[in-house]
């Protein structure tokens, strides 16, 4: 117990001293997981809205793929991305392996199905008559889709939280494709693994506390946004 307490104390010391190594790890973490979440959002929300409103042949197959992706084991994603990005692999020419880009790619593959799936559920909750009505009033299909998503924006924030949570808490895949290089691809999760491997449990606990605080801060921000805008 004393160890945990000391870890928490150390976490706040590191934060308040603006420890340069910690700041770098934090920055890489936010940049990688933030970008991955945004990219997943840009791809996942339109796709989810489309799948949620549009009935087409093969839709249930598409849904099954998305739902499987929501539960895809991150190490499998990591292995797949690593093999793709090898110098000898099909995407080797990009030179992405062991850079933040590889980590963004892996986290996007993890977060994208989560955001798509949640978006689909959010849009499906909206009264289908709304879309019909809008189309009847002369809205184009795209306008109608945007209006439906606008209407589902509050549950969509839950999709963002889930996607961000999935991306930032990931460790196996980013370790494989990022390499946990100090100052470049070391994020909070991989740094925690490294420190506990080194037996520096105090530092490991401090990093965990900081990771929890970061996730908590982002989720609180999104929740406040969500609740403030709730239609009463």
């Amino acid at each position: 117990m004393e160890l945990i307490w000391n870890g928490i104390v150390q976490a706040f010391k590191l934060i308040f001293h603006l420890d340069s190594e910690l700041m770098n790890i934090l920055w890489v973490t936010i940049r990688v997981s933030g970008t991955a979440t945004l990219v997943s959002l840009l791809l996942g929300v339109p796709l989810g809205a489309l799948l949620g409103t549009w009935r087409f042949p093969g839709r249930s197959a598409a849904l099954s793929i998305i739902h499987t992706g929501m539960g895809a084991p991150p190490v499998v994603v990591g292995l797949f991305v690593m093999i793709m990005l090898w110098r000898s692999g099909p995407l080797g020419g990009l030179n992405f392996l062991y850079t933040p880009w590889a980590m963004i790619l892996a986290q996007t593959i993890i977060a994208f199905p989560i955001i798509t799936g949640f978006s689909m559920a959010a849009v499906a909750q909206i009264d289908p008559q709304l879309r019909q009505q809008l189309l009847g009033l002369g809205a184009s299909r795209i306008q109608a889709l945007r209006a439906v998503v606008q209407e589902a924006r509050l549950p969509l924030l839950t999709a963002i939280m889930a996607g961000f949570g999935g991306a930032i808490s990931e460790v196996g895949a980013v370790m494989m494709v990022g390499g946990n290089i100090k100052g470049e691809t070391r994020v909070l999760t991989t740094a925690t693994v490294l420190e506990s491997g080194k037996g520096e449990f105090g530092t490991a606990i401090a990093l965990s506390v900081i990771l929890l605080l970061l996730v908590f801060g982002v989720i609180v921000g999104l929740t406040v946004l969500q609740q403030r805008n709730r239609i009463t």
Binding site: D127, L130, L137, Q150, I231
Partner: peptide, 21 residues
């Protein structure tokens, strides 16, 4: 259940709330 309500609510909320889009 009334679509007209939805439209009114939709327009109303667009003005009041942050715009997702």
């Amino acid at each position: 259940g009334n679509p007209a309500d939805n439209i009114i609510r939709f327009r109303d909320s667009t003005v009041r709330d942050f715009t997702f889009w």
